[in-house]
Design a protein around this nucleic acid. Sequence first.
DNA 1: GCTTGCTCCTCCAGTGACTGGAGATGTTAC
DNA 2: GTAACATCTCCAGTCACTGGAGGAGCAAGC
Lengths: 140, 140
Amino acid sequence: MSDLTIGDVARESGIKINTIRFYEDRGLLPAPPRSAGNRRLYDPAAVARLRFIRHARELGFGLPAIADLLRLAGHPEAPCAAADAIARQQLAEVEARIRSLSALRAELQRMADCGAGSTADCHVLESLGDHSLCAGPHES
Amino acid sequence: MSDLTIGDVARESGIKINTIRFYEDRGLLPAPPRSAGNRRLYDPAAVARLRFIRHARELGFGLPAIADLLRLAGHPEAPCAAADAIARQQLAEVEARIRSLSALRAELQRMADCGAGSTADCHVLESLGDHSLCAGPHES
DNA sequence: GCTTGCTCCTCCAGTGACTGGAGATGTTAC
DNA sequence: GTAACATCTCCAGTCACTGGAGGAGCAAGC
Ligand SMILES: [Zn+2]
Ligand SMILES: [Zn+2]
Ligand SMILES: [Zn+2]
Ligand SMILES: [Zn+2]
């Protein structure tokens, strides 16, 4: 009676229809029952699950990590150390990316203040052609 | 006489052989002449060009932007405003990504200090399930 | 001249996380 | 009945590579 179409859950979760089917294919969302006409019929709980996925994606978690988190969330009595570890690792990765990007920003700032008029003397092109003008190494 | 094999330029530029062929396919590197046995024979200038590409990639430039920069570098008499604009835009993108990641870091820090024992009360899972617990919106 | 081992060739599939489209049905409103 | 819309499956493309299969060139040792 309170069955939702894929369009409904897409609207309510903010996730596109194609992406919902993709998540089902990847095992993040259980395959729902179908109507007589082969349409997916969702439980309202699917919206909460999709919102969880969306929020985790916005925070940068990868799909395998989200699958782990969803599995852990299904065992309310179990200790949450595993979930906490996944979040801490994500935090560490975000911090590493911030450090790396901050180094890039410094290099780009140095080379972007170019007072030359011709490309022959351009600070940007010169710096790109010779990394020894840089302060440190760049790591990906 | 001073012709280099693809292995030579790979070693000297720090770019893998497959990637060099990929850059050739994408038009970043002109297709070099071939030997009688169909091997690519490179000019030493190819090494400089590849080093330029590598450095720009390390700084986060995309391949279309690098193609533009290489084209501009080939006109020494022209004004360098276009090259400077590409660098400034790259700087702006890096800064935007740093801002976005800093917001993510704050959210992750808030949710990662979880003192709960069971997943039922886990701060991580709770926060992921309800974005209204977050301070602000997340933009990609 | 033959084998061994290295380099190189082309082509193709896979990565992550989707996105968009084709072409075929199902459903709803008038 | 028919027009408009929603949904179905499947496939190709995105970005910047990476690695591998299967074949051929090339130098050295015997
Ligand atoms: Zn300049
Ligand atoms: Zn550098
Ligand atoms: Zn916890
Ligand atoms: Zn949030």
